[in-house]
């Protein structure tokens, strides 16, 4: 079981089953990405594997930020699939990848097969390094939706969730709720086991969890 209650501060997520996939939805600039990364970081501090699939940041940036976030963690096991449309293949610096770090580059956020291969290679490496448990973050589905249609993204999420389930990992996926119509959001939500809604309220950022317990939780500040 995965305990996300220290990040989300609700008992609803204190025992998340391996294989669970969670959508983090909210308007732009509400800290979705940071929340996803913190869920991964919490795992890294306990020795879980971490896998980041990014459509916006370079592998180098992700690795640097992540190392800062989990400063002090020894034996960090981090996989990164960098899907920005810049070059493909290769490691962080031409095979000069430090131990515990697995980088795979994909030519475009629309190249789902390439992303799948990257995820597979990273999962293999993480497993090989002994990370039997782990957490994956995909940031963000909104970018993927600009490269391909929602049916394809929906199916991709479903297949990927099944793969994570087989690996015993959990997955968090972010989506910018302001960038898509209601129907698209409703469809995409259905590909996940649970939903974390985030919003900017007067008192600061808040989140609520749906789908992992019987009813939605109350809004909690982050």
């Amino acid at each position: 079981m995965y305990d996300l209650s220290s990040v989300l501060e609700t008992e609803a997520v204190s025992e998340v089953r391996p294989g669970t996939s969670i959508l983090i939805a909210g308007p732009a600039m509400t800290g979705k990405e940071s929340l996803a990364m913190e869920i991964l970081a919490e795992g890294s501090r306990k020795g879980d594997g971490a896998l980041v699939v990014s459509t916006s940041d370079s592998a180098e940036t992700i690795v640097e930020d992540y190392r800062d976030r989990v400063a002090g963690v020894s034996n960090l096991q981090l996989g990164v699939v960098d899907c920005r449309a810049e070059g493909s293949g290769g490691g962080l610096a031409d095979g000069d990848t430090p131990s515990g770090l697995y980088v795979h580059k994909v030519s475009s956020p629309g190249d789902l097969t390439g992303i799948g291969i990257g995820i597979t290679k990273c999962l293999e490496a993480l497993h090989g390094a002994g990370a039997e448990e782990g957490r994956m973050a995909l940031i963000s589905l909104s970018t993927m939706l600009t490269y391909t249609d929602r049916e394809t993204v929906f199916k991709f999420c479903h297949v990927l969730s099944s793969r994570l389930d087989a690996a015993g990992y959990i997955g968090v996926f972010t989506i910018d709720s302001g960038a898509h119509d209601d129907q698209t959001l409703q469809v995409i939500k259905q590909a996940f086991d649970g939903l974390v809604d985030v919003r900017d309220a007067d008192a600061g950022r808040e989140a609520r969890v749906m789908g992992l317990t019987d009813g939605p939780t109350d809004w909690q500040s982050l």
Binding site: L112, I115, Y147, T152, F156
Partner: peptide
């Protein structure tokens, strides 16, 4: 994944 139409590069 290929089956769901993700193999077309943009």
């Amino acid at each position: 994944i290929q089956q769901i139409g993700g193999s077309e590069d943009t």
